[in-house]
């Protein structure tokens, strides 16, 4: 049954090689914010043929609940993989990176602080939907603001995107004036966007967690590489922080 499923997955996804000596294929469902880093390092992971799919972490979690055959779940928070672990659909997650939620504006944008954002009206703001980690972190920030400021910002939210790529896209296209994304997303735009740091008191703790959905040598090799190998280095290069000890 499992072999049949794999064969079907290979047929649909187009597995390369496939000789008995080839490294096992590992299907990774990953947070959209990991797109750049994991696309860069995936092919170089020793002991695993890595196939990555990127989407909002909540959408990946929902796919895993429906039995989509991911072997590993790399999420933009610890809560989603923890919930899957509690439902016995994944192993216990371990942290592998940190990130920083920032206010992003176009390079020629005028807003310089979250206070200015709240005081400017009308202004077009993009946030993540509440169920996707970037949206949940954003709501943590708003909850720490004075109610009037939070209300002013929410009033100008013009779109709740399903993942962070949607927010970046709307910013780059000029459809919005500001958005809440991760610092690494801004770095990946090569200067088209500018990151404005949030005051430390507002900053949410952003920890990425990885959990194994299907045990196997390939999944173990990928998780090890994500924490200490080429993917860990790719993450640091992309601006992600080292995981908390």
């Amino acid at each position: 049954m499992r072999r049949g499923g794999l064969l079907l997955a290979c047929l649909l996804a187009g597995c390369g090689g496939g000789g008995s000596g080839a490294a096992p294929t590992v299907r990774v469902g990953a947070a959209a914010s990991l797109t750049g880093a994991l696309t860069a390092c995936g092919p170089g992971v020793p002991g695993a043929h890595v196939q990555t799919e990127f989407a909002g972490s909540d959408a990946i979690a929902a796919q895993i609940r429906q039995g989509v055959g991911f072997d590993v779940f790399a999420a933009a928070d610890m809560a989603l993989p923890r919930r899957l672990a509690a439902e016995h659909r994944a192993g216990a997650p371990v942290p592998f990176a940190t990130n920083e939620l920032v206010l992003a504006i176009p390079a020629d944008g005028a807003i310089r602080s979250i206070g200015r954002l709240a005081a400017t009206h009308p202004v077009r703001i993009a946030v993540g939907a509440p169920s996707v980690p970037v949206g949940a972190y954003t709501r943590q920030v708003l909850a720490r603001l004075p109610a009037a400021q939070a209300h002013a910002i929410l009033r100008d939210v013009r779109t709740q995107e399903p993942d962070v790529k949607g927010i970046v896209g709307k910013l780059v296209a000029g459809a919005v004036d500001a958005g809440f994304v991760y610092r690494t997303d801004v770095l990946a735009t090569d200067g088209r966007l500018r990151a404005i740091a949030l005051p430390p008191a507002l900053r949410p703790t952003v920890v990425y967690g990885v959990a194994t959905v299907h045990q196997g040598a390939g999944a173990r090799a990928f998780v090890a590489d994500l924490r200490h190998g080429s993917c860990a280095r790719a993450l640091r290069r992309a601006g992600f922080g080292a995981p908390p000890p």
Binding site: G56, S57, D58, A59, A61, A62, R65, Q66, A126, A129, P130, S131, V132, V157, R158, T159, Q160, E161, P162, G166, K170, A175
Partner: peptide, 23 residues
């Protein structure tokens, strides 16, 4: 058009939004 409840979030977009949230 983006995805904002009541403004641009049509049924198809709401389905995608709820997929990760409430099947």
């Amino acid at each position: 058009a983006g995805s904002l409840p009541g403004v641009t979030r049509t049924a198809s977009l709401a389905i995608y939004d709820q997929f990760g949230n409430d099947l």
